[in-house]
Design a protein around this nucleic acid. Structure first.
Length: 307
DNA sequence: GGTCAGGTCCTAT
DNA sequence: ATAGGACCTGAC
């Protein structure tokens, strides 16, 4: 177990921000959503979550320490934390500085960053992110989660998760935690091996992408993407069957960490039309508009939920 | 029970 | 090049 006091970190907000689909609250310790804008205050009791990422998984327990500080425990060693989770959660970036840079006269963005404080743009596994956002197209977040979880249960290897010694979660066993499946394991299931996962017509995109990413050649393609600039990565991704501009931008932002990528989906279209009829001020936020996109997207979701 | 989901592909102009 | 329709399915 490894503990940190963190600012601009709220695992629940990250979980609900729509960039990641394999973080979930532990059943025994769930709590309502928190959003300053909707009158809710962060729960003062500890909440615990299970975060699965690629072949890694960890329990995360958080409790507010003060107004803007969170006490966060990770059920892993300090080494595992510094080798993987620190980077995964983008903990070396100063999100407070990003929030401070927002134009105070921009009422919508100001509300969005207040509501979404605690968001971070994760550095997710590339292959997992490609599949996740192929699934996401013309789909809803609940079903995306269900489909991906079912995919992991069918093809992902079981992985172990350390429990907190003093947690109610100790009584649970995490045999149900699966790694994200490899391209090869999906190929072994054959073309019909994706039936029954609720993927709909997206199954063919996923199977083809598994063919694309399998083997040494596939790995080399993924490595090339990892080394590419935003512009080059975008062009490479757009060649692939089932990947359009929006999904490509999500992959660039959430896996390749090109934080200037600015995915525009139905929600963002509505926001841009309603609040930025003259255009979003990209030049003011050059190089990191994608991070602000995430605050706006999350804010929009919380508004929809309560209206 | 219709509408809507973090869109993309395909076809017809 | 650009517009319009089809598309799996289940959550709400």
């Amino acid at each position: 177990m490894y503990e940190r006091i963190l600012t601009d970190f709220d695992i629940r907000t990250i979980m609900d921000s729509g960039q990641v689909f394999r973080i979930r609250p532990l059943p025994l310790e769930s709590a309502p959503i928190s959003c300053a804008e909707t009158g809710g205050s962060p729960p003062s009791t500890a909440e615990t979550f299970l975060a699965a990422a690629g072949k890694h998984a960890v329990l995360i327990r958080q409790k507010p320490e003060s107004e803007d500080r969170m006490r966060v425990s990770f059920s892993c060693t300090k080494e595992e934390f510094s080798n993987f989770w620190n980077s995964y959660f983008d903990l070396d970036r100063d999100y407070e500085a990003i929030r401070r840079s927002v134009d105070p006269e921009d009422a919508f963005l100001t509300s969005a960053i207040r509501c979404g404080r605690g968001i971070r743009i994760l550095r997710q596994d590339l292959w997992e992110t490609i599949i996740s956002f192929l699934v996401s197209q013309n789909n809803n977040i609940t079903r995306i989660r269900r489909s991906l979880e079912a995919l992991c249960e069918r093809y992902g290897e079981k992985i172990s998760v350390n429990a907190f010694p003093d947690s109610p979660a100790t009584s649970l066993t995490y045999e149900s935690v699966h790694a994200f499946p490899s391209p090869e394991s999906i190929l072994e299931g054959g073309p019909g091996g994706l039936d029954g996962l609720g993927l709909g017509y997206r199954d063919k995109y996923i199977f083809r992408m598994a063919q694309r990413c399998a083997g040494q050649e596939g790995q080399e393609w993924l490595d090339l993407l990892l080394k590419s600039s935003y512009e080059d990565a975008l062009a490479l991704l757009l060649k692939e069957y089932g990947i359009g501009k929006k999904v490509a931008d999500c992959i660039c932002l959430f896996a390749l960490h090109h934080v200037d990528a600015f995915p525009i989906d139905t929600h963002m279209k509505q926001i841009l039309n309603a609040f930025y009829p003259e255009g979003f001020p990209f030049s003011r936020y050059e190089g990191y508009a994608g991070i602000l996109q995430q605050y706006m997207f999350y804010y929009k979701l919380t508004q929809r939920r309560t209206s």
